[in-house]
């Protein structure tokens, strides 16, 4: 009986898992790009730019992710911006997490010793090149552990987009559970499937960190 349920539910949940991975990947890339932009603005020598970025990051961090998702999915249409649930989910999660990514990158950038920047400047490098050739490559190595953590958190928090009807794994589970009342089977499967994704991911990240983070930074 249980086995039959598992066999029935699993294909539906796996379809949801694919969507979960898509949401995670999309919002991770988006949050990395926006986060990097914020981080660069936060370390800018121009105070207005830095203050602006710090304010935006604080506002984003101060809002619950669900509220941000609702706002993008339900409120933006009133301003004529129509997004599919998937688009709204990826953008919402991407923006919400960009604040944390900004902090990861900012910490990495600020950990670079002044001497590195002086050495680059002494070769005649301009600011943007100092960033690109000397600071960022080292900052990424330093930021790798928190960056990886963020990825794992995003995998789990992608379940939040179920609230705006994206058919990812949690949503798929809810739908099955409400029609079959097999709550235990469904949610145990959902939990196991999340673990099947997050644990290997954590392990892979640990390996990557071991290769990069300790060596080759100043």
């Amino acid at each position: 009986m249980i086995l039959q349920n598992v066999l029935d539910f699993l294909p539906i949940l796996l379809k949801g898992a694919v969507v979960t991975l898509q949401v995670t990947a999309g919002s991770f890339v988006l949050s990395s790009l926006i986060g990097l932009l914020f981080a660069l603005m936060m370390v800018s020598k121009i105070r207005t730019i830095a203050l602006f970025a710090i304010s935006v990051v604080n506002i984003i961090r101060g809002l619950p992710i669900i509220v941000q998702l609702f706002y993008i999915y339900f409120v933006l249409p009133e301003f004529g911006i129509q997004l599919t649930a998937m688009q709204a989910g990826v953008i919402g999660l991407g923006i919400a997490y960009s604040a944390y990514q900004a902090e990861n990158f900012r910490a990495g950038i600020q950990a670079i010793q002044q001497g590195q920047i002086e050495a680059a400047e002494s070769l005649g490098m301009r600011g943007a090149m100092v960033m690109r050739r000397v600071v960022l490559p080292q900052a990424f190595r330093i930021a790798l552990p928190p960056y990886g953590n963020t990825l794992v958190m995003m995998l789990k928090d992608s379940s939040l987009v179920s609230t705006i009807t994206v058919a990812e794994m949690t949503r798929a589970g809810q739908l099955i559970a409400s029609s079959t009342f097999e709550n235990m089977t469904v949610y145990t499967l959902v939990a196991l499937l999340y673990l099947a994704m997050s644990l290997p991911l954590s392990f892979a990240l640990r390996r990557l960190e071991a290769r990069f983070s300790t060596r080759r930074t100043s």
Partner: peptide, 26 residues
């Protein structure tokens, strides 16, 4: 700066590049 080079007390080599890459960077 590209015409007046500097050598530092603490070397300040770029740790993520090999010795040769450090020399080729500029």
């Amino acid at each position: 700066r590209s015409r007046v080079a500097m050598v530092f007390q603490r070397f300040n080599l770029f740790p993520h590049r090999t010795a040769l890459e450090n020399v080729m960077e500029g």
